[in-house]
Design a protein around this nucleic acid. Structure first.
Length: 459
RNA sequence: GGCCCGUUCGUCUAGUGGUUAGGACAUCUGGUUUUCAUCCAGGCAACAGGAGUUCGAUUCUCCUACGGGCUACCA
């Protein structure tokens, strides 16, 4: 293979959201290309007209844009190569590497059933292999797979893999309706796109020898293959809807940062010593010197969340402000102060709106259990005295507020918690919040007094 | 059933023919914080099993078990 020109591709079917497993495979294909100064192309395998939808193609492309995986050159639509696929099939037919078969589906089903019952590998028995039938309405074209020997290839990830030709089928390359099939289309497209390295999920391992044989029949060199293990759900089972979000766009919508997402996905199966945090550039620069695991990996939302928090913490304040969805958070100073205050309490972009809501909406109802925790015998009197003290406070700054509360607590000979808890509940409607003095400062004196008054009535 | 791939803490992984088998997430315990979160310190926790090769195997080989994939006129 010409190592100086690395060209990889990712080839999804547009039949659903970009799956997290596919995104990871694509990321590896992309990183492999980039680390070798090569290109990575996107090919949409839309030949299944029934299931393929334009909206899914758009969604896939959007997801990659969001992730920061940028494909080179134009997107290739497999359906547009239909004629080319067919002409290669004819070529194969002409050169005797393929043949016309008129076996009925019924016969094939029966055959398969018998073979399975006998513990054999189900495969076409070659009835029409040497019949030289001519094409008609109900015929298909089958590839004439070699009968002896084996296909041996060096997998980039798994090492040497061998398949005996006798295990392989004379698989169909053109259906009776004239549509070329997957294993032919892939070969033709990879060839035409000059793909040097096919990096794909390891569910394709057993398609590989078939495809290599087609390359051989076409008398061209086959690409190098690398099979990435699949990604499993948290329970170690195959990823599915049951496991929560499987679509990349769902993670975006959850408030995950693309950098965190990419970093997490890369580290899921790939590693470089003990390093956990990698920028996109670091990934590109170090991918080849790292190590790709041969075993499937389980997805962990906990760890993704941890990455997200790391990136959130490291982010420049102004960049962060720009990213926060603006339900009620505006780009004004008050909101900036709010963001600053709640920043380290947030694991995702979306947390900012839930964590900040009491800065924008007065508490209206208090939960019984919270009231039970916060309100003791003398609480109401204490709260109301504190309210008076605060309203007389000259300087409305967190330091002076805290000082005032401390003095108050000492005078009353009570613990801080005795007044701190009900105060927090009054102001935020919750038992948890940032430092109460900081919350007071931000809310403003008038608002604080008002909220305490309201709480006094509701408690 | 057949073929193929895989197996280091709960999870992601590092690692070596001789290591106290390392790190990260999660978890637990302390400290900080009036609360929660953050932060800091510390703890628990793994080489699937069995043979063989070897002075010595987690590391090399084989077998078994378990898990996964594929087995279409889907891609």
């Amino acid at each position: 293979m010409n190592d100086s020109l690395v060209r990889t591709r990712f080839a999804p079917s547009p039949t659903g959201l970009l799956h997290i497993g596919g995104a990871r495979t694509a990321l590896f294909a992309w990183l492999y290309a980039k680390t070798n100064s090569g290109s990575c192309l996107l090919r949409i395998e839309d030949t299944d007209k029934e299931r393929s939808k334009q909206e899914f193609t758009d969604e896939i492309i959007n997801s990659f844009n969001w992730m920061g995986v940028n494909f080179d050159e134009d997107v290739v639509y497999q359906s547009k190569n239909h004629d080319r696929h067919l002409s290669v099939a004819k070529e194969l037919l002409k050169s005797g590497k393929a043949y016309v078969c008129d076996c009925s589906k019924e016969r094939l089903d029966r055959l398969r059933k018998e073979q399975q019952e006998q513990g054999l590998n189900p495969k076409y028995d070659g009835k029409c292999r040497d019949l030289s039938l001519s094409e008609s309405d109900n015929t298909v074209i089958r590839f004439k797979n070699p009968e002896n020997g084996s296909v041996i290839f060096q997998d980039l990830i798994k090492g040497e893999i061998e398949f005996r030709n006798e295990e392989m089928d004379d698989f169909i390359i053109v259906r009776s309706d004239g549509a070329p099939t997957y294993n032919l289309c892939v070969v033709v497209d990879d060839l035409d796109m000059q793909i040097s390295h096919v990096i794909r999920g390891d569910d394709h391992i057993n398609n590989t020898p078939k495809q290599i044989n087609v390359f051989k029949a076409l008398k061209v060199e086959s690409p190098t293959y690398g099979h990435v293990p699949m990604i499993l759900g948290e329970d170690g089972k195959r990823m599915s809807k049951r496991h929560g979000a499987v679509g990349v766009s769902e993670y975006r919508d959850m408030g995950i940062l693309p950098q965190a997402f990419m970093n997490y996905l890369a580290r899921l199966g790939w590693s470089l010593g003990d390093q956990e945090i990698f920028t996109s550039d670091e990934l590109v620069n170090n991918f080849s010197s790292g190590n790709l695991n041969t075993a499937p990996a389980s997805f962990s939302l906990d760890k993704l969340t941890w990455y997200n928090k790391e990136y959130l913490n490291a982010m420049e304040f102004n960049d962060l402000v720009d990213l926060i969805p603006s339900e009620h958070i505006k780009n004004d100073q008050y909101s900036k102060n709010v963001i600053e205050l709640i920043r380290d309490r947030c694991n995702s972009l979306n947390d900012f709106s839930t964590e900040s809501q009491y800065f924008y909406n007065k508490p209206e109802v208090f939960r019984e259990e919270d009231k039970n925790k916060a309100i003791k015998e003398n609480t109401l009197n204490l709260l109301s005295s504190l309210s008076e003290r605060l309203s007389d406070l000259a300087e409305w700054k967190s330091d002076s507020i805290q000082e005032e509360i401390k003095v108050f607590v000492e005078e009353q000979e009570i613990g801080f918690a005795k007044i701190g808890i009900p105060l927090r509940l009054s102001l935020t409607g919750s038992l948890n919040s940032p430092s109460i003095d900081k919350v007071c400062e931000l809310l403003g004196k008038e608002e604080v007094i008002e909220r305490i008054d309201f709480a006094l009535k509701s408690f």
